[in-house]
Structures are given as C-alpha cells and as structure tokens.
Amino acid sequence: MLTMARDAYLVLVGHCYDGLPLEACGLLAGDPDAARVDVCYPTGNEAASARVYTVSPRDHLRADRDAEDRGLSIIGVFHSHTHTDPYPSPTDIAQAPDPTWHYVIVSLREGAPTMRSYRISEGRVEEEGVVLA
C-alpha cells in the first residue's frame, strides 16, 4: 500500500497533463519505511516521446539532493501513459532500476486520470493500493 500526500498527487497529475502530447515523468520522495510519498518532483523527459520516457539526469540529481535536505529519500518514479492503460509496459518492467521503489503510472486515456502503483522486482509486477492522505 502506498500513501501519497494530496499535494504531491496534484503536482503529479498536473505535470502529466502539462506534458501532453508527450509522456511526462518525475520522482517521488518520502519515507521508504512508511511507503509514504510526501513530495513529487516533476522532471524533464529527455526522450521527448509519446511512447517512452527518460528522467532527466540533471533533474534527478537535483531531486535527490533536495529530498536528502528534507530528510526524505527518493522512493519511486511516476510517468504517464497518454493513450494506454496504467499498467507497466515491457520496457517499464525490464528497466525498473530499484526493487524497493514504487512505480506509479497515470493513464490519461479517459476523461479523468487513472493512477496505479506497482512494485517491480526481477521482472515480476505486483499492483499495490494507493491512498491519498
């Protein structure tokens, strides 16, 4: 179960819509033990693509340092799927960098955003619930 601060959720969804027609991405910071996201860091998508994303390495470094200054850790990544379901693609699964992270996907296919979160470890995908708090 992932808990996400409402403000972080609003930043996350806003960034996904701002990125259209391309995929948007960013990093999530919080307390890894509590599985709680306190801060959302929108990042550039270096791939500049509607199908794939690459978190800007410079933005990643900036987010990592800011999170550390706040006593938080980067605990996950989010990205948008502009025209498909919010389920990890084979690329998402193959390239998941950290089995302790939470992988959040927002589908913008319908009129309202649909957000899902997953754990991905050694090619296995498990969905987890998300609670806004």
Binding site: H60, S89, D92
Partner: peptide
Amino acid sequence: ISILPAVAGG
C-alpha cells in the same frame, strides 16, 4: 561524485 540509477521506461 554522485551515482544514481538511470530511470527510464515506456
């Protein structure tokens, strides 16, 4: 020096 994972997907 900072080492971070490259974060990418589709």
